[in-house]
Design a protein around this nucleic acid. Structure first.
Lengths: 146, 146
DNA sequence: ATCAGTGCAAACGATTTGCACCTCG
DNA sequence: CGAGGTGCAAATCGTTTGCACTGAT
């Protein structure tokens, strides 16, 4: 009966809302904003109402425990959260329609980034590509005046 | 007498505040936040007081004209502006002291990123490295519990 | 002189915090 | 039962906007 519980670190209470936030993040195919998580968690909770501040607090705790990572989209500064699974994903972001296309693999897999940075020890990285997606190219875009 | 004026695109008034914001960006060695720009511009203006909203508006115009680019630090979502010079810079960011160390070169210079992205045309990219800088390593850091 | 640009203050959205109540363990 | 978690509302921070005034052309 306590099977979902086992993935959870000790010393943190396994409440209904935390359970749901965690489940939402598990289901998510991409990083989510606190507000998205908030709505999805409420839906999971079958209509029960949560406080947005609670979501923020839960996410802060999860981050502190190393369960999730918090980053911003470079384009607009929107903060998003995602579960710390083993792998990580980068995105190509269309400047026209703002769609995000996950990259099939991390371009840094075979690059020795970890050196030549003057004593800096690299433990992670984040990359975003910008450009125009298949669909938006068709509409004759490619320049960047408005 | 109008020598600084020539770098400026037409159709936009070359006011004192715009002149100073532009000069601040020229002098800057790294991307700056609107508030930083605001303070630096006031200093340039020899103590004259500017409205922060004016800075925001000027930056918006500059961005629209393609003179500056606006991006967020991935780590914290802080929006920063920098002059669109030819080159671009990436940073290694220390997770401990939050110092930013510019990378000596763009690791993508010799990588064919522009393909294998399923019809997506890449026009730009942003990269941030995370880790621990020389100084913070000394203090025996390297794990990430608090 | 005209219209774009500015300053000021209010509005706004995202995030944080204080406090009283609730609940997991 | 008690510490920690939650809800609610107010506070805070970064950014935007409306409006009347000023200044560049």
């Amino acid at each position: 009966m306590n099977d979902e519980k086992r993935e959870f670190p000790q010393g943190i209470r396994w409440t209904k809302q935390r359970k749901n936030v965690y489940a939402v993040l598990q289901d998510a195919g991409e990083p989510l904003t606190p507000v998205q998580i908030y709505h999805l968690a409420e839906r999971l909770a079958d209509g029960e109402e949560y406080a947005l501040s609670t979501i923020y607090r839960i996410l802060a705790v999860f981050e502190e425990k190393g369960m999730v990572s918090k980053t911003a989209w470079i384009g607009d500064g929107t903060m998003v959260y995602e579960l710390n699974r083993g792998e990580h994903t980068h995105y190509a972001i269309c400047l026209e329609c703002h769609k995000r296309i996950p990259l099939p693999h991390c371009p840094f897999a075979h690059i020795a980034l970890e050196k030549d940075t003057d004593g800096f020890v690299v433990t992670g990285h984040k990359l975003e590509l910008y450009g125009y997606c298949k669909d938006c190219r068709k509409e004759g875009i490619g320049e960047n005046q408005e």
